[in-house]
Design a binder for these strands. Structure first.
Lengths: 349, 349
DNA sequence: ATGAAAGCGCTAACAG
DNA sequence: CTGTTAGCGCTTTCAT
């Protein structure tokens, strides 16, 4: 004989065993008050005896809502997102929600079909861990359809929990200035949302201005290539690092970019930090490896995740279709400078 | 006026507009044949006009099954799992499934409650990206309740898609032997499933035996600590690396462990590979960074994910509760040696 | 304080 | 080929 699995008991069978109606059982499991203690007791016993577990699918069906978060992730290969994803999952679980991930890999179409899939599943809310504002389609899709929160980035059409990017940019730049650097460049890669990029660059410019140093336009680099965009024009990355006005320090808008740049610099016979200092942004765990030892501006990931999930849960709980929502709120969390080995005094010229 | 969102049309309204019954609409959307082309056409038009989308929740309710995979992940902080998770999600999506992740962080209780949550959600199947066989509770929970597949590891109570761990161990060891090493150690960390650990160690021993070299017992190390277990006893990691019979090469059972060991060695004034060669297992993207440059045995992640998901989908499709299942199948994928800078000839003694 | 009954939107027999 | 009908398991009025 196969050890048969009998199908799980329903609310009806519990009711029968306890000698009450389905509604009463329902009231007991949902813990509504107004059930006589004695009845409640009998129902509990019946539940116990039958090993009854409410059927989540039926619940979701009747409520037309799940207890699942959709999480849109930029790219799980990027440890920044991987770490965030993990923390989001953990905090969601803590609030009784599960997490469904959707890896959009920087692709707008993927983002759209991802959101469609999530909406189809009637997720209770959506967490954005990455979003490239180019796609109004996503905004359109979500508007009034589900509570959302942006974690680690800003968008003005939803709640957001993020660090002070401008502060971080200022902090990084000031660190370099204090070390004695005067020729400091800002370099960014496509892994960073445009808005965060702008803010970090603005922080950089502010710090430079305060120190009466010349700020430079952002250098745009896609790691893997050897070319950059600088202002309007193209240039070879090597040239930028070797030219007469070459920087003695580079503030990179994200750790992964900084590590890629470090590698590029290594390969071209320059030394970090003796020839050029490097500072990143994020503080991915990778940055702490002794062989990488990247100075960086740390984002408090756990705090971001915790607050983001809390905010989303709050929204969900007061959510009603077609009800006017509170205006979006932007929550800011402070960054912290983490000094490691990739920054030092500038070379004597 | 708020731009009201009217609630989405149901199958009923489509039927009304098309002038047919719900069943016919149902037949059209499920693409069952036996619907007159003209009727089908009319229904399609009505669907189009109304912007009708079948309600996934209702479907799942009636089928008592979702189109979601539960994915149990060891730890998303570990890039090996993060990369696998991403690929699983991608392949799942490719087959029309979504992925719900559950980060178990090496904790059995978390694994149990995670599986419970997944089961409660009636996931269509479960992908294990990590599992520490100590917990029969998980097996008990899942037995006959949902199709499962182990990806990247072996368990005999379910399908598995994994590399030939013994082959990999042999390959790694042979590489070291060919470089001239004779004193080769095997070191493992808790991040590796016991079974894979044993197989990799067995591969190591086989290679050593064939070369008529003395195999050593596995060194067990938890990165972060300075102590190891060697056979039955404890020892300081430094001692192991410095003792008279110190190894000139270490085969580490996983990349993250190898990188941690490399860091430890760096810190203690030894050089890799001049003083000691290091080879890992997995080929996480991290290993390819120039500053890490870890020689390793590569697992074909995408292949593992692809085959794993395909196998699971197959199981799901022929799944019926209480039906005898085909016996578990173990699929093996070949590994590949990736030589980088962490291995070289042994020091002249 | 409890029960009866009406759905939620869809699928799947079964009849015609 | 198409329509009718009976659920799926639970929540939620509304009576009692």
């Amino acid at each position: 004989m196969t050890p048969r699995i009998r199908k799980p008991p329903t609310i009806f069978e519990v009711a029968a065993l306890a000698g009450v109606s389905k509604s009463t059982v329902s009231n007991v499991i949902r813990d509504v008050d107004g059930v006589a203690p004695s009845t409640r007791e009998r129902v509990q016993v019946a539940i116990e005896r039958l090993g009854y577990r409410p059927n989540a699918l039926a619940r979701q069906f009747v409520a037309q809502r799940t207890t699942t978060f959709g999480v849109l992730v930029g790219d799980l290969d990027n440890p920044f997102y991987a770490e965030m994803a993990k923390l989001i999952e953990r905090w969601a679980f803590h609030h009784g929600y599960t997490a469904m991930f959707c890896n959009i890999e920087g692709d707008d179409d993927l983002a759209v079909s991802g959101v469609e899939a999530l909406l189809e599943q009637h997720v209770a809310g959506v967490v954005f861990l990455a979003f490239f504002g180019r796609s109004p389609a996503v905004e359109e899709l979500l508007r009034q359809r589900a509570p959302i929160v942006f974690v680690g980035l800003r968008e003005d059409w939803g709640d957001s929990v993020a660090v002070g990017d401008a502060d971080g940019g200022r902090l990084a730049t000031e660190h370099l200035i204090e070390l004695g650097h005067r020729e400091i460049a800002y370099l960014t890669t496509p892994a960073v949302e445009p808005r965060a990029d702008r803010a970090r660059h603005a922080g950089y410019r502010a710090a430079m201005r305060r120190a009466r140093l010349a700020a430079r336009p952002a250098i745009r680099w896609a790691p893997g290539t050897e070319e950059v965009r600088l202002g309007g024009r193209r240039a070879a990355l090597t040239d930028v690092l070797v030219d007469t006005d070459r920087p003695t320090a580079v503030f990179v808008s994200n750790d992964l970019g900084a590590i890629a740049l470090q590698e590029f610099i290594d390969l071209h016979g320059l030394r970090v930090p003796e020839d050029v200092s490097l500072i990143g942004f994020d503080n991915v765990s990778l940055a702490g490896l002794a062989r990488i030892s990247l100075t960086t501006v740390a984002q408090p990931l756990d705090e971001l995740a915790r607050l983001g999930v809390a905010r989303l849960v709050e929204r969900i709980e007061r959510w009603e279709p077609n009800r006017r929502q509170d205006p979006p709120r932007a929550i800011t969390v402070p960054v912290e400078l983490v000094v490691r080995g990739s920054t030092g005094p500038p070379p004597r010229s």
